[in-house]
Computed example of a mutant assay.
Amino acid sequence: MDKIAVLIPCYNEEKTIAKVIRDAKAALPEAVIYVYNNNSKDRTAEIALAEGAIVRNEYMQGKGNVIRRMFREIDALVYVMVDGDDTYPMDSAPEMVDLVLNHNSDMVVGDRLSSTYYQENKRPFHNFGNNLVRGSINKLFGCNIRDIMTGFRAFSYEFVKTFPVLSKGFEIETEMTIHAVYNNMQIDNVVIEYRDRPEGSESKLNTYADGMKVLKTIAKLYRNYKPFGFFLIFSLVLALISIFFLVPIVTEYWRTGLVPRFPTLIVCCFIMLSAVQSFFAGVILSTLAVNNRREFEMQLNMLQRHKETDMMK
């Protein structure tokens, strides 16, 4: 088991990967540096090897697939994940590592949005998207994460080995955050500097397509982790629709004793039944979610014993 592992997912980062590796070595000289090459068509892997990093490959395209591979293969007391595009200075890495090793942090978030991100980033829709995602997650899950989409984080062994990677692409950062929040894992924020990509280095993000994937991921994870709240919203919407169309029918019946719109009445009844079903679906799934939390805590205890055994070897 490594003490510190620096994990760098890469796709066509030949212009910046050498500097990122050198900066990582300077900031964390005791760390083992892993570069995971994701089908790069340039010299990323060759340069990383020349700089002394351990280079491995993930052939399924997408950042989520790369992170799944990294988390499966690497055992370490603390993991530092940083993008290979040189947008995150490594100066804050020692502080992030210290929080994991000595202050029980499970995930340390490199907070760009509280420093230079809005000045450095030249894509206004990315700024809007970051704020929208951050506000949505903090509201839905009752937390205070300052930067949801950052690619600079540190993790504990327990987080990495219990995190089920489901996303394939850039929505993985959102999934990480919600996993930590829902399972009551300790999250700390460290304000970091951010710099835009150097000239000649191109972003792999598609503002609109990846933005929609992130929003879909939030909705899906809210359904999975907070099923009562999710289905309660549907239940209330359906109930309001039913009542809206039912009130005129009932009013007409009280006034004349007649029901002139039987088809509308029947549809309203079915919509109200759907509302009741949604409510009880939320209750049942919420109970199952509580049981999943219990199993997760037991899994954490087993991982802790496994880690202590590995450290004694």
Rank of each mutant, 00 (worst) to 15 (best):
R261Y: 15
I284Q: 12
V109P: 00
N121V: 05
A275M: 10
R56D: 07
T256W: 09
R68K: 13
M302Q: 13
A50N: 09
N138Y: 07
N38L: 01
T87C: 12
D188R: 14
N12P: 05
F245L: 11
I241Q: 08
V100I: 14
F244A: 11
K19E: 14
A180E: 03
G257Y: 07
Y208P: 01
N301V: 10
E120Q: 14
S274K: 09
M149L: 15
F234V: 03
G169R: 02
S278Y: 12
V237T: 12
Q61T: 09
L99Q: 10
L300E: 08
N65G: 00
I233L: 14
N291L: 15
F228E: 10
M60W: 07
Y88Q: 02
A219T: 13
Y34E: 07
L303A: 05
N183F: 15
L140M: 12
Y208H: 12
D188W: 04
M185P: 05
F125W: 13
I233S: 12
V66Q: 01
F270W: 14
I4H: 00
D91H: 09
K220I: 11
K204E: 12
V160D: 01
E46N: 04
V108L: 01
F270Q: 09
D147R: 06
V283K: 15
N144S: 13
I21T: 02
C143I: 07
I178C: 04
M302R: 14
E46V: 07
E51A: 08
D188Q: 14
H103Y: 13
W254C: 10
G142L: 07
W254K: 10
F231V: 04
G282M: 09
A50I: 03
K15I: 11
K63D: 01
M149G: 08
A50P: 00
M298A: 14
A26T: 09
R56T: 10
F163T: 01
R255S: 11
S92P: 03
L28N: 00
E308I: 06
V55S: 00
S105I: 03
I74R: 02
R134C: 09
M312Q: 13
I67T: 00
E14F: 07
Y117T: 00
I47R: 05
L28F: 02
R69S: 12
S201Q: 15
P248Y: 06
V78L: 00
A239L: 13
F279R: 10
M90A: 10
V80A: 01
F230P: 01
T16W: 06
N292E: 15
Y222V: 05
V109I: 15
I137F: 05
A289G: 08
T264Q: 10
R123A: 09
L238G: 02
V276H: 11
L49E: 15
S201G: 04
W254E: 10
S92L: 06
I4D: 00
A154T: 08
